[in-house]
Nucleic acid binder design. Structure first.
Lengths: 154, 154
DNA sequence: CCAACATGCGTGACGTGTCAACCATTCCCG
DNA sequence: CGGGAATGGTTGACACGTCACGCATGTTGG
C-alpha cells in the first residue's frame, strides 16, 4: 500500500537477512563444538585467553580486559569466575587501587590456548575464508564495516 | 615460515574476522534491546511468533516448529515453557499421536507480534540495510551463501 | 576535613542454549 | 501377537549473558 509507514524488506533483502541469521547462529556453534571437542575450551574462553596472551605478563585490569573484548564488566566477572574454577586464569589484587583487580593467565591457561589455537584457526579458515575469494572477503569487509558504523556511532 | 602447517589469517582477513565477531555480537544485542524495550519480547520470542503466524490456525507440531526455526527440540521445549508462562503460546495434545504436541499461538501472542513487528523491521532496516547499497547487499548475500554452503553440507 | 558523589568490581536473579538422560507412545519385525 | 528399537517430547544440569543492585574504595567540593 502506498501509505505504508513501515516498509518490509524486499525479496533479496529478506533472503540475505535469513541467511545472515542462519550463519550467525550456526557458525559460532560450529566453532564452539570444534574448540570444545579438541581443546575443552569454549569460544569465550578462547577470546579471553587470546587477550591475555596479547598483553605483558598475561596480566590485565578487569575493566581493560572487558573493553578489549567488548564485553560488559559483569559478563567478564562471571566468566572469570568460571575460568578460575578450572585453573585457566587467576585473580590478583591491585596495589595501586584498592578497588581494582587483575586477571592473570596461569600456566595452565597458556598451555591450553597454545594447544587450541592452531585447530581453531584451521576451522575458521576452512568454514569461512576458504569459501570466499579475495574479492568476496573485501566485499564482506565493506559491508561489515558499514553496519559496524551504524552500531557504534562514535 | 615455509613449513607452517597452520597459516594464520592475512591482515585483511584478520580485520574482517574481527569485524564479523563484533557485528555478530552487537547486532543481535541491539535488536534484542529494541524489541525488549518497545514490545517486551526477546528476539527468540519474536522468531517463534513469526513462525506461528505463518501457519494455519497458528498451530504447529513441536518438531515442525523446531525444524522451521532451525532449533533443537530441547531448546524449543524450554522456550515454549517460558512463553507459556507469559501467555504468548499454549501447548495442546495431539489426538493422532499420543506422543505429539502442538504449540498454539494465543490471542495475546498474536497481539504481541502484531504490535512488535513494525518497529523490529524498522530497526533491521536502519541498522543493516540502510547502511548498504544494493550492490553491497548482493555481495553480502553471496558471501553468506558461500559460508552457509560450508556449514550445511547437504 | 568530611560528606556526597564517582568508580571498579562482584553478586543474584533470571532468560537463553546445549548435552545427556529420560519417559511414553508408536513402529516393526520375528 | 510381543518385545525391542525408533520417535516425539520433556527435564535437569550446567554454561553463557544481561540487568539491577550492592559494596568497597577513591575523589572532590564546601
Amino acid at each position: 500500500m502506498a501509505t505504508d509507514q513501515t516498509p518490509w524488506l524486499d525479496d533479496r533483502q529478506q533472503q540475505v537477512w535469513r541467511d545472515w541469521l542462519r550463519v550467525g547462529s550456526r557458525l559460532p556453534a560450529a566453532l564452539n563444538r570444534q574448540l570444545q571437542r579438541d581443546s575443552d575450551l569454549s569460544l569465550q574462553d578462547f577470546d579471553v585467553l587470546v587477550q591475555l596472551t596479547d598483553v605483558d605478563e598475561g596480566r590485565v585490569r578487569v575493566s581493560a580486559l572487558a573493553a578489549a573484548l567488548g564485553w560488559e564488566r559483569s559478563r567478564l566477572s562471571h566468566h572469570v569466575t568460571r575460568m578460575e574454577r578450572r585453573g585457566l586464569v587467576a585473580r590478583e589484587e591491585c596495589d595501586d587501587d584498592g578497588r581494582g583487580a587483575f586477571v592473570v593467565l596461569t600456566p595452565t591457561g597458556r598451555a591450553a590456548i597454545e594447544r587450541a589455537a592452531p585447530g581453531h584457526v584451521r576451522t575458521v579458515r576452512s568454514l569461512v575464508f576458504d569459501a570466499l575469494a579475495p574479492a568476496e572477503v573485501e566485499a564482506l569487509g565493506e559491508a561489515l564495516a558499514a553496519v559496524l558504523g551504524r552500531l557504534e556511532p562514535s
